[in-house]
């Protein structure tokens, strides 16, 4: 196992991050910190840069400038990669393999013990589909396989790009219970979402708009500062307020 430089350093620390994709500036200059064991919701309109920020944190995004430190090491460092789980927005698993075979492969790369595979399957409630070829599953089921593939590695930091899209309320609630229990074990989670009632499950929320962080607060704090009772209204107000300024 990799040596931990400082176990109390922030889980993620981003300073002056600048990312340019396809000639346009997606993240002009972003700085933020995420504490260990925190569940952070990453919200913002489509195209605001959520995925780009996540890719930067897990070290697969070319960045133009800035420093990213993850679990005390530079983002994308070999030693930190084994401790970060990333679930891409579109399910990234092998469609021609079964659920079990996919998890066996990703588990083997993480050197996870076999019972970890069963635990991951249970966590996403796919027990009855374990032997099915992933390509024959529904979109939401495929997404859960993708999530399970990140869980087998027992990461210290989980970066989840819209993990609950296309799931019914019961499954969403169960998954959030899983996320909360991971967090209580000390795992840090960064979760992007479009669903506002999920934002309430987070310890803290980052609201992005055009690559800029326009709010960073607890759900209650956001409601209070915008004078709303509903998170959805709070977001709309914040986004409109920013729009008026620019």
């Amino acid at each position: 196992m990799a040596t931990e430089p400082d176990p109390r350093s922030p889980a993620v620390s981003v300073a002056d991050l600048r990312v340019i994709r396809g000639g346009t500036v997606v993240l002009p200059d972003l700085s933020l910190k995420v504490d260990r064991g925190e569940v952070v919701g990453l919200l913002g309109p489509s195209g605001s840069g959520k995925t780009t920020l996540m890719r930067s944190i897990v070290g697969v995004q070319q960045v133009a400038a800035g420093t990213l430190t993850v679990l005390g090491l530079p983002a994308g460092d070999r030693d930190v990669r084994s401790r970060v789980g990333y679930v891409t927005q579109a399910a990234s698993v092998y469609n021609d393999l079964t659920v079990i075979e996919n998890l066996q492969y990703f588990g083997a790369l993480h050197r996870a013990p076999p019972d970890e595979i069963n635990r991951a399957i249970d966590a996403v409630d796919l027990g009855e589909f374990a032997g099915r070829v992933v390509g024959s599953l529904s979109g939401g089921q495929r997404g859960r396989v993708s999530l399970a593939a990140a869980l087998v590695g027992k990461p210290n930091l989980l970066v989840l790009d819209e993990p609950t899209v296309g799931l019914d309320p019961v499954l969403r609630r169960d998954l959030w219970a899983t996320f909360r229990s991971l967090a209580s074990d000390g795992v840090t989670l960064i979760v992007s979402s479009h669903v506002m009632d999920e934002a309430d499950e987070c310890d803290s929320i980052i609201l992005l708009r055009d690559g800029k962080m326009i709010a960073r607060d607890t759900p209650q704090g956001l409601r209070d500062s915008t004078g709303t009772t509903d998170l959805e209204d709070a977001f709309l107000r914040l986004i409109e307020r920013e729009g008026d300024l620019t």
Binding site: D79, Y86, L109, H110, G153
Partner: peptide, 8 residues
Amino acid sequence: ERLMSMSV
């Protein structure tokens, strides 16, 4: 992309 985010 997933593999590249891992330690492989």
